[in-house]
Nucleic acid binder design. Structure first.
Length: 557
RNA sequence: UGGGGGAUCGUCUAACGGCAGGACGGAUGACUCUGACUCAUCUAGUCUAGGUUCGAAUCCUAGUCCCCCAGCCA
């Protein structure tokens, strides 16, 4: 069911690669996906993953997975596994090319020494506050550190003593000697190494000095032979530094940094910090809550890797900040699931229907196609009985003109079963409809009338006796605002983002489903079996509702 | 009133001096044992003002608006 990748899609990065290949600058390409393992991957990362791995695939190159673990952070390891799982689940393979920035610490240290020896780096003993003051502002140049002109020998000795652990955190840093008057503040003698007496999840206590991102990233790219180092827009200011470092210390070919706009999706937030807050403050049930834009959340919600990849192909790659409509993601998953999801009938909000002329105790089975366009998916037998459930929304006592479902005196088709006509409406003391009585036409088994009469409406149903109960979780946007980042996002949390239905009824065949299996509940939507499902409790997540043109008509009435 | 980027239908994105195209959304209709799917038609755009040119989204000039940068985070 795999759709071929859209390799035609043109974007500015492909144009650059095409030129590099045509000019002979490169004979092949190498990209990388370099997450910092301090959070779960989200749909924004998926854009980067699809871009980097997709480029490697389409140009016959390779893409590395590199954990950017430069900062000694305790919980790096707990995220690494989920990141690898998510990348694999999305359908990408880094093969042998799994790397860790921390693997380069030895080489990075040597590069730092080389820089010092060239007189292009120095140990600065200003305090963090002083460094900030000396840096100047966006409109005023910075001032040179009083330690800027230490001798190479002194710098070498100090840096060595930093490495040996002779100083406390914050006492000294290694800085590049560039230009304190640069209009680009990134170039005002940026910090390259800082002291951190912390053990690193991968290098343990070997180091107490750790390189900064700017120093690590360009050299890691170069060491791995990356040709095109693709990152997001906020690193544009860092590109001159990326190039400066390589120019000063790296002898081989230099990777080219290219920046693109990160993904923004309407009605959601994407920053790790904000997603973490949602988890920590209990707004959602965890990183894999089906309302989260995380890969784990989307997976639990029932999204397929194919749908996510298709989405990433369709949104394109450019440099302009943009906000993609959530409806596009929904379109992609509907398109994929329409083709591959087995159909079944489920009644979310049951209304009992008694077919008064159907023999009590009788059970017969009707045959139903598992997919209307794909006969290879087979058929199933569904029990039909005197008492059934239909959707409350499929009955109206006093229907408007365009309503063509069940109503007093109206005939509709029960999907795959019989034509029934409503004869009575039963209400409780408060006037609520509790039951509907109908008669069926025994000549219409299977759903068509021998006399050729047409019925406009077809509704879904389940046997009252044979159907089994299920919990169904309906989801809506997590935020009420299209752009929750404008203002305090916590104020825009959608109180109705989750609706739990505990008394839905599903076909008896659903007894044996497995977590993450996906179905289309006919006329309702696409649903996925939640891992909360147990032997005696079925739980479904609504991935996305079917398009509903009746709802649109209703809105206009 | 520093520097770096960006601006094309409502949204996302193509067009590299030569017919502004696609997708999503929206609208209308056809089909239909899912008001689904599918199909058809329609909708709607080059930030502004000048200039160069036979011809400008594209080149030039001047504006406007938006984003990023002052972590020993990435």
């Amino acid at each position: 069911m795999d759709r071929p990748a859209n390799t035609e899609a043109s974007n500015f990065i492909r144009n650059i690669i095409d030129e590099d290949l045509a000019s002979g600058k490169h004979t092949g390409i190498v990209t990388r996906f370099p997450p910092e393992p301090n959070g779960y991957l989200h749909i924004g990362h998926a854009k980067s993953i699809c871009l980097n791995f997709g480029l490697a695939r389409d140009y016959g190159g390779r893409c590395h997975l590199r954990f950017d673990d430069t900062n000694p952070t305790r919980d790096y390891e707990k995220y690494m596994e989920s990141i690898m799982e998510d990348v694999k689940w999305l359908g990408f393979d880094w093969g042998e090319h799994l790397y860790y920035a921390s693997d380069y610490f030895d080489q990075l240290y040597e590069f730092a020494i080389k820089l010092i020896k060239k007189g292009k780096a120095y140990v600065c003993s200003l305090s963090p506050e002083e460094i900030r003051e000396y840096r100047g502002t966006l409109t005023e140049p910075g001032r040179e550190s009083p330690y800027r002109n230490r001798s190479i020998e002194e710098n070498l000795e100090l840096f060595e003593r930093m490495r040996k652990g002779e100083f406390a955190d914050g006492e000294h840093v290694l800085r590049a000697k560039i230009d304190m008057a640069s209009p680009n503040v990134v170039m005002r003698d940026p910090t390259l190494y800082r002291i951190r007496h912390l053990s690193h999840p991968r290098t343990g206590d070997k180091w107490c000095i750790y390189p900064m991102y700017d120093f690590t990233h360009c050299l890691s790219d170069a060491l791995e032979g990356i040709t095109h180092s693709i990152c997001t827009l906020e690193f544009e200011n860092n590109r001159p530094l990326y190039e400066w470092i390589l120019e000063e210390v790296f002898d081989g070919p230099h990777p080219q940094q290219i920046e693109f706009a990160r993904l923004n999706l309407s009605y959601t937030v994407m920053s790790k910090r904000k997603l973490l807050r949602l988890v920590e403050e209990g707004v959602v049930r965890g990183w894999d809550d089906p309302r989260m834009p995380t890969i784990a959340g989307l997976r639990r919600r029932g999204y397929t890797p194919e749908a996510i990849r298709d989405f990433c192909d369709r949104i394109g790659v450019a440099k302009a900040n943009s906000m993609v409509d959530y409806a596009l993601l929904e379109h992609c998953v509907r398109e994929d699931l329409n083709a591959r999801a087995e159909r079944t009938m489920a009644v979310l909000k049951p209304l009992k229907v008694v077919i008064t002329n159907y023999p009590e105790g009788q059970v017969e089975y009707v045959e139903a196609a598992n997919h209307p366009q794909d006969p290879s998916m087979g058929t199933r037998e569904i029990p039909f009985t005197r008492e059934i459930y239909i959707e409350q929304d499929d009955f109206m006592e006093d229907p408007p003109k365009k309503f063509y479902r069940l109503a007093p005196g109206r005939e509709v088709r029960l999907r795959f079963a019989y034509l029934i006509t409503c004869t009575d409406v039963i209400k409780d003391e408060e006037g609520n409809i509790v039951e509907v009585h109908c008669t069926y036409d025994p000549e219409t088994k299977g759903g068509s009338a021998p006399d050729g009469r047409k019925v406009k409406g077809t509704i879904h149903w389940v046997s009252a006796e044979h159907s089994i109960p299920a919990e169904v979780r309906l989801y809506d946007h997590l935020f009420t605002e299209e752009n929750p980042d404008e203002g305090d996002f916590m104020e825009y949390i959608n109180p109705k983002s989750l609706e739990v239905i505990t008394d839905a009824r599903v076909e008896p065949r659903m007894k044996s489903v497995k977590p993450l299996e996906r179905f289309q509940f006919e006329r309702v939507g696409y649903f996925c079996v939640d891992p909360d499902t147990t032997e005696d409790r079925l739980v479904f997540n609504r991935t996305v509702a079917l398009r509903d043109s009746w709802a649109k008509i209703q809105n206009k009435l």
